[in-house]
Design a binder for these strands. Structure first.
Lengths: 326, 326
DNA sequence: CTGAAAGCGCTTACAG
DNA sequence: CTGAAAGCGCTTACAG
């Protein structure tokens, strides 16, 4: 049925060893022999069995990726960056999520041990970091995307959260806003702490509400601040989703954006272009982060030692109408 | 280094065959022997090598998935549905995209032939359908998600596009709209033709603009219709993105939604909840479609013959303020 | 109920 | 430059 290396060898009148050699361009092979073998390979439509190759070589040429829920608005970009890079290198991408709690972690763990993949890409591991750290110590190459400030012991790629926060503050200051309301994510995330302190360094404020990255939390923060009667002239939300919530609460309260209140978000998810008004936001280079992480992992698998400092990609302030330039 | 079945066998004082039997609960094994083997497996932390198992069994317990760009707004949901289902069955998911054109198709094709996966899930294949059809004929199990009306020769899961279009029309009619503008996607997509004819059956109109599922195309369609001076009291856009474009164009022209013009979209992407006003839309059950397709493929791999009729999941009209009920 | 042996399809020393 | 043989870690008839 299936065409094997033995079939090719027989048809070409050489040994399997020789076929293997031309397949992997390893060792010297007579140029005519090689040509003949190649011809047979083509005419038979032979493709090496990845399973057999993996078993013999002890590696699977596959990379694993463990992600948070895939419907998070920016996961698509990260994943696309990873897939493109991994595919271009001739590797496969095995996808796992930690959606189904303990059960899926178990499934994932067993796949790791089963050597189903050679290295692992990790996105914002909520509660699997310990497990992963253990695996990494046992020799599994790991690269982390967005460490949320946990600073683990393996290579990671992050973004300039502190500078991103600072750039938001500088922008608000430049357009004359001095009394901002800051809506954060959960404080235990390193990225949240960094965005906050970067912002506060430039534009100090006592008005800081802890949110949880949901639209509802953004809405709630604004509603409460309005109800308390505390004056503010701008909002810096730690992600776009909560900025969207802020926009709605402001509109519902009859406040005009940006005239009464300017709003700046963080992430630049696709939705940010389509809010009313469109959202000024600090862009995270999600796709580039995915690409970079994948390249680092592949390089590591190829023998290049991994950088021990996190690779940090720059954020970029995207100015739209919710906090215009002038 | 690595713990193998031989280590377990030695430690337990049995043959590899016996270990394999308790591993796969296949054949009769003495209950005490089995217990002892299980103990050794646990204490040694033995996990079968997926590569070796795959080679010996001739199957990889892995499913492939070929998708359009992953940053499409509803891909996350589909993917999540698939991953959950596949993981729960103990399978791995190997992800491919047809992003990089010919090159990635080639990479993908070679993975297929390499038997890197046992079956394939396919989402809206733009131009790979021929290749896939050929593979299917050669015995690769395939399930298609959202066939866009191409009606291929393999199993597929779709949604009620025609009824979805009809439900949009009924809703508009119920709220007193009689002069709709329809903004379609490209006409060669089956889903577009179905949505359109379902709509027109209920609410005929001559005002049909062909778009291409982008926000810009929705905006353009509205701008042109307004410029032409043709009166209309509502918009039915074939996807949410172009509905968003329509909303913006209407606002820019000073028309009020829904008072002047009611707007209905299709898809129910996350953004639909956050437009101004929030978008009434025909929801496609993306996650369920992913789950269903995965279940069908797994069942097929398990020996159950695949249904030869497409499995059709119902759409649902989600009423929001852009076209309210009363 | 249990085991020895062959085989899955490759790669890789080793020898020539 | 080339090949025979062992080995990667399993499963599966076959025999007992």
């Amino acid at each position: 049925m299936r065409v094997t290396i033995a079939d090719v060898a027989r048809e070409a009148g050489v040994s399997k060893t020789t076929v293997s050699r031309v397949l992997n361009t390893k060792g010297e092979v007579d140029i005519t022999t090689a040509a003949r073998v190649r011809e047979v390979i083509a005419s038979l439509g032979y493709v090496p069995s990845s399973g057999a190759v993996g078993l013999a070589r002890g590696s699977s040429r596959t990379v694993g990726m463990l992600t948070p829920p895939l419907n998070w608005p920016w996961m698509g970009e990260v994943l696309q960056g990873v897939v493109d890079t991994v595919e271009a290198a001739g590797y496969g991408l095995l996808l796992f999520t930690c959606n189904r709690g303990a059960e899926s972690v178990e499934h994932f763990t067993s796949q790791v041990s089963a050597r189903a993949f050679d290295g692992l890409l990790l996105v914002e591991p909520e509660n699997t970091l310990d497990t992963i750290t253990a695996m990494h110590r046992k020799g599994l190459p790991v690269v982390l995307i967005d460490d949320r400030g946990h600073h683990p012991e393996f290579p990671s790629v992050a973004t300039t959260n502190r500078e991103g926060g600072a750039s938001a503050a500088r922008h608000l200051l430049a357009v004359g806003r001095t009394r901002p309301l800051v809506i954060t994510g959960r404080r235990h995330f390193g990225c949240v702490r960094e965005r906050l302190s970067g912002f506060l360094d430039v534009l100090p404020t006592g008005l800081v509400a802890e949110g949880d990255f949901t639209e509802a939390s953004g809405r709630l923060a604004v509603e409460r601040t309005l109800a308390a009667g505390t004056p503010f002239d701008s909002v810096f939300a730690h992600n776009d989703l909560s900025a969207v919530g802020a926009l709605r609460a402001l509109r519902a309260a009859g406040r005009t954006v940006p005239d009464d209140i300017a709003v700046v978000g963080f992430d630049d998810i696709p939705m940010a272009q389509h809010t009313e008004p469109p959202l000024t936001t600090v862009r995270q280079p999600m796709r580039e982060m995915g690409e970079t992480a994948a390249r680092m992992l592949l390089a590591h698998l190829g023998g290049t030692p991994a950088p021990d400092e996190p690779v940090v990609l720059p954020t970029e302030l995207i100015v739209r109408r919710s906090a215009p330039a002038s």
